Simulated scan of single mutants.
Amino acid sequence: MRRREALCAIGSVLAAPGWAQDGSARVQVPDVRLQDQSGAAHGLRALCGGPVVIGFFYTGCSTVCPPQTAALRALRERLDAGAPKAGAARARLLSITVDPLGDSPEAIRAYARRFDVRLGLDAGWLMLTGQPAELARVWRAFGVPVGDPEAHSSLLWLGSARDRWTRAAALTPTARLAELVGSIGA
């Protein structure tokens, strides 16, 4: 079975969460274990215990993922330099693959090097992969279209496991993203 067909089969039962008119939604963050770029396992719900920005990507993307990665890098730098609210500096960035069959920890490390991204819990940014069935639960929770990695969304999800989530375009100006992160849990 080719990659696209395999991902379509995984995603055929996925449904999007209900978003309110103000752009917010309750997202039930699934209790799944994903692997970071080093191969270490992390519980997604635990990673989302505080302010978090989640983007979906894949390492073979040549359209939206490179500018989204650059935007997240700029956001991480701004948050580290002193965000508008104290809590925003603690925000974690998570980039989650939409192509688990192609995005191994090694592929993710190479992608991060290509974009000069510093990753790790101490850096406040993880790039995550995992088993397709586990990732399918994540995609379903966030309403991510599945089946063709090239058709993935360029939205960022901002929130925490305890709060409502909001979405923003990946290319939203960095200052605005930092404001949105600062308002999580406020």
Rank of each mutant, 00 (worst) to 15 (best):
W165K: 11
A161F: 01
V64E: 12
K85Q: 14
G147K: 08
V29P: 03
I96W: 00
S104T: 15
F115A: 12
V98H: 05
P149Q: 09
R26H: 12
Q28W: 02
P67I: 08
L171S: 11
V181C: 02
T166P: 00
I184R: 04
L121F: 01
G185H: 07
S160T: 01
A178D: 10
A141T: 06
M1E: 10
W19D: 04
A169S: 14
I184E: 03
L121C: 05
Q35R: 14
R176C: 05
L126S: 10
I108G: 07
Q131F: 09
L158N: 04
A16G: 01
R118I: 10
I54T: 08
D99T: 08
R176F: 00
A6L: 14
P30K: 06
P66N: 08
A25I: 10
W165T: 12
A41H: 09
R92C: 11
P51R: 13
A168S: 13
T172K: 04
L135F: 07
I184H: 03
V13K: 13
I184M: 09
E106F: 02
E77H: 07
P67N: 07
L94V: 08
L126E: 13
L93Y: 02
P100W: 10
Q131C: 01
F57N: 03
L128K: 06
T69K: 09
G147R: 07
G39I: 12
P149I: 09
E5C: 05
S95K: 02
E77R: 13
G23S: 08
Y111Q: 13
S95G: 15
M1G: 14
A141D: 06
A89T: 15
A46I: 04
Q28A: 15
A71V: 05
A9H: 13
T129K: 08
R78Y: 03
S153A: 13
P149E: 12
R26A: 15
R2E: 14
W157L: 14
L34Q: 11
A70C: 11
A112D: 10
R2I: 12
S154V: 03
L44K: 07
R164G: 04
L180F: 04
V144N: 02
G159W: 07
H152D: 06
G18W: 00
F142M: 11
A81F: 09
W125M: 10
A91T: 08
P84A: 06
A123W: 00
T59E: 02
C65I: 11
R76A: 14
G55D: 13
I108N: 07
A141C: 08
L93I: 14
P145V: 09
T129D: 12
L158Q: 04
P149L: 06
S12V: 08
P173T: 10
A81W: 06
L44I: 11
D80Q: 14
Q131G: 02
L94N: 09
G18N: 03
S183C: 13
L119G: 11
A161M: 02
L121T: 11
C8W: 13
L47Q: 01
A41M: 09
R33I: 12
T166C: 13
A15H: 15
G159Y: 06
Q68L: 13
F57G: 03
A161I: 02
R92Y: 00
M1C: 10
I96A: 04
D80E: 09
S95P: 08
A170F: 00
A83I: 02
V117R: 08
A110E: 14
L44W: 02
T69M: 13
R176W: 03
